[in-house]
Amino acid sequence: MENSGDERKIEIKCENVSKVYKLGNSIVKALDNVNLTIMSGDYISIMGPSGSGKTTLLNIIGALDHPTSGRVYLDGYDITNLPERKLTFFRRNKIGFVFQAFYLIPTLTALDNVLTPIMPRGVKPADKERALMLLEMLGLKNRVHHKPGELSGGERQRVAIARALISDPPIILGDELTGELDSKTGQEIMDIIDRLNSELGKTIVIVTHDIKVAERAKIKLRMRDGRIIEDTGF
């Protein structure tokens, strides 16, 4: 973040981003004036207690949600007020989401689950090959035709990672992606995330409240009450 002489391009930028929820009479400031610049190839973790605004921030930079105020830029485009239809374009091409609860489709095989993001536009043989390649890369060569019910938690999360990679997006966002895994499996998943950054050059932003997970990142941020309070980047 502080490498100002950096030649890499800016992947994500938040300017004074706030998100306010109104619940009856009370107001919840989920995000409070967040400023954040993420360069291409960055590996960032955001740690903070539950309710500190991590998911809200991730959803906003992931083109899933709009801020109440401030501006959000993705790959140089101002996506702050884009309509849903246009946001989908960014989600499909720029972002790969990995969730805590995997969210795989139980009726589909691992292979088909990986292909779901591109199914609406038709799955070509090359796509299928890519999906198989990704599954193999993630150590699921023998699990291609298994359904999620037949897979372990770690395997499911690996399928979800392959799904996030199917469109070859530059950015991977992970929300508590080890939250439902035991610590050993969690570390294995984090090994994969490390490789996505170091070998494939993906920009990674992960949100967690697990310090061991957060420490994997090159840039470690902390959040509290909707603000980024510590910037330990180097």
């Binding site: 239809r85 989908t88 989600r91 499909r92 989401f97 779901t116 993001p117 609406p120 799904r163 469109s167």
Partner: peptide, 14 residues
């Protein structure tokens, strides 16, 4: 609904 939400999050349009 969760599945449709996931699909939308991963790039499906309405």
């Amino acid at each position: 609904l969760k599945e449709y939400a996931t699909l939308k999050a991963t790039g499906w349009q309405n």
